[in-house]
Nucleic acid binder design. Structure first.
Lengths: 112, 112
DNA sequence: TGTTCTCGGTTACCAAAGGGTACCGAGGCA
DNA sequence: TGCCTCGGTACCCTTTGGTAACCGAGAACA
């Protein structure tokens, strides 16, 4: 690995909280907009739209519109997106397994 | 893995652009404030201070002050911090190896 | 016939967070 | 006397992001 600082801009996108969760949601195949919105607890419609746009622009996922009414739009990982999913999986798992440790550390820090 | 949405708050910290780079910088042992500032290209003094505080609060690293003049403060990963470092390494590597792909995808997106 | 629901957004508004720059203090050195 | 260092804070502007309202066309309901 050479200069990791070159990766700063990329990290600003793939390191994004919402982007990580969206990529994870798509691991088992395409998902619809509303499906993602319901599954990713706490994301606002605005942020979901914006993050999906960014990920589409960067070639992480594809957006497919089926011209029916009511609208049907599905999102799916590209091959590059699937490699990203593999790269982010350890961080996701780490976050979940260390939730309690972080809470404990934070409580201890507050009581100093 | 249960509900990944529980990890949202944690992801907001460990998924942070600067936090990822700082954790990586500390992989080979303690580093001083100014050392980090010089090594992480583009980070401002303010953001370095703030991010280090957050990581210290969350038990990712320790801050050690040596009472001399000029000041000497060193930062070092905790055991939990080292496990985080391992979890983030794949994402860092991915970012660097896919920099060019992302640029290409972004250029193609702009020309549609 | 009119009302209301759906999906996948967009937009305006506003508060909160992010982040750059200037400045600080105390000792060392010329 | 003046200027350098390190680590950090105060100030202030910019960006981010949540909320809520609106949209359009079909479908279900009454």
């Amino acid at each position: 690995m050479q200069d990791p600082c070159q990766a700063r801009e990329v990290l600003g996108i793939v390191g994004d909280k919402w982007a990580l969760l969206i990529v994870r949601m798509l691991k088992d195949g395409p998902r619809r907009f509303t499906e993602l919105k319901r599954a990713i607890d706490g994301i606002s419609q605005r942020m979901l739209t914006a993050t999906l746009r960014d990920l589409e622009r960067d070639g992480i996922l594809t957006r497919t519109v089926h011209n029916v009414m009511p609208p049907h739009v599905s999102y799916e990982l590209t091959p590059m997106g699937r490699t990203l999913r593999e790269a982010t999986a350890p961080l996701l798992e780490w976050s979940i397994t260390h939730l309690a440790h972080i809470d404990a550390a934070r409580a201890a820090y507050g009581n100093r």
